[in-house]
Simulated scan of single mutants.
Amino acid sequence: MNFEICTDSVEGALAAVKYGAKRIELCAALSVGGLTPNIGLVEGCANTGIAVNAIVRHKEGGFVYNADDVSVMKLDIKSIKEAGGKGVVFGILTADHEISELNKELCSYAKSLGLEVTFHRAFDFVKDYKSAIKKVIEMGFDRLLTSGLKPKVVDGLDVITYLQENHGLEIEIQPGSGVNPQNALKLAATGIQNLHFTARKSSGGETSLGMGELMEVDEDKIKDIIDLFK
């Protein structure tokens, strides 16, 4: 089993190295589903030795973008590569919740830089996942991150199973959202070979003036999940 730790810090990258994860998905603003991390953070995490796949999502609130957005995303992809990133994670939808043709341009650009490419949980908003997965594969994506169109993976297990059984040889299917020590083995029983999970918890520190909550790495969660597969 390959493990991808979703994190927003160098400390998370170090924990991923410590417990033998294959890579991290690096994000800022995890409270809104993840936004593009700053380049200093990408480089700092890459310097730990872990493979860094960085999300490319420059604004919250959805996944419908235009040509100007794509230009911004290309700049971010280039910067992520230069900072030592090994891959990028993105997904663009049309206003009708279908896979946008703009993804093909971005996917080709990222691959021309030698990056691997993951289509992220924008997929969980599509109307027809059976046709959507075919389009994602045709565009050249290496991996799909999905919760099976549900808020949590345990509720989307039927979709995840379908994707793995029908397309698992064409693209890596990676469940994510709510993966924990209690359900990891159940997810593995679908035949998937990749698990994605966030491992952080409140630091217990006080916050004020709308500056957000300080979080810290939950090493126990990382250890407990990975130990299940030893």
Results as ranks from 00 to 15, higher is better:
39 I>D: 10
67 A>S: 11
65 Y>D: 07
85 G>Y: 05
43 E>P: 07
40 G>F: 00
80 I>R: 01
75 L>C: 09
86 K>R: 12
79 S>L: 15
59 K>P: 04
74 K>G: 07
80 I>K: 00
81 K>D: 04
86 K>E: 13
52 V>T: 01
85 G>W: 08
77 I>D: 05
86 K>Q: 14
74 K>E: 10
50 I>F: 14
74 K>V: 13
71 S>D: 15
80 I>M: 01
71 S>L: 13
44 G>T: 15
54 A>Q: 00
60 E>P: 11
47 N>E: 14
66 N>P: 00
78 K>W: 05
41 L>G: 03
80 I>V: 12
74 K>T: 06
67 A>F: 10
83 A>G: 10
63 F>W: 15
59 K>S: 08
40 G>L: 01
57 R>F: 10
37 P>N: 04
56 V>Q: 12
63 F>V: 11
61 G>R: 04
57 R>H: 14
81 K>S: 03
76 D>F: 07
70 V>Q: 06
57 R>C: 11
50 I>P: 03
48 T>C: 02
86 K>A: 12
49 G>F: 05
46 A>H: 00
81 K>I: 00
75 L>I: 12
66 N>V: 03
63 F>Q: 09
41 L>P: 01
65 Y>K: 11
52 V>C: 02
44 G>W: 06
58 H>V: 07
55 I>W: 00
43 E>K: 15
56 V>A: 10
49 G>N: 08
73 M>W: 06
68 D>L: 13
72 V>W: 02
85 G>F: 08
84 G>C: 04
52 V>A: 01
80 I>D: 02
47 N>D: 13
42 V>T: 07
61 G>H: 01
81 K>T: 00
45 C>Y: 04
57 R>M: 11
55 I>Q: 03
80 I>H: 01
63 F>S: 13
61 G>N: 04
70 V>Y: 06
63 F>T: 10
37 P>R: 01
81 K>F: 09
38 N>A: 07
45 C>P: 03
82 E>L: 08
43 E>V: 03
85 G>D: 06
47 N>Y: 06
83 A>R: 09
71 S>V: 09
61 G>D: 10
80 I>A: 02
84 G>P: 05
70 V>N: 12
60 E>G: 13
50 I>T: 08
46 A>T: 01
76 D>N: 14
86 K>L: 12
38 N>Q: 11
73 M>E: 03
47 N>R: 10
72 V>Y: 09
85 G>H: 04
39 I>E: 05
48 T>L: 10
46 A>V: 02
56 V>H: 14
46 A>N: 01
48 T>D: 08
50 I>D: 12
79 S>Q: 13
73 M>Y: 09
56 V>M: 15
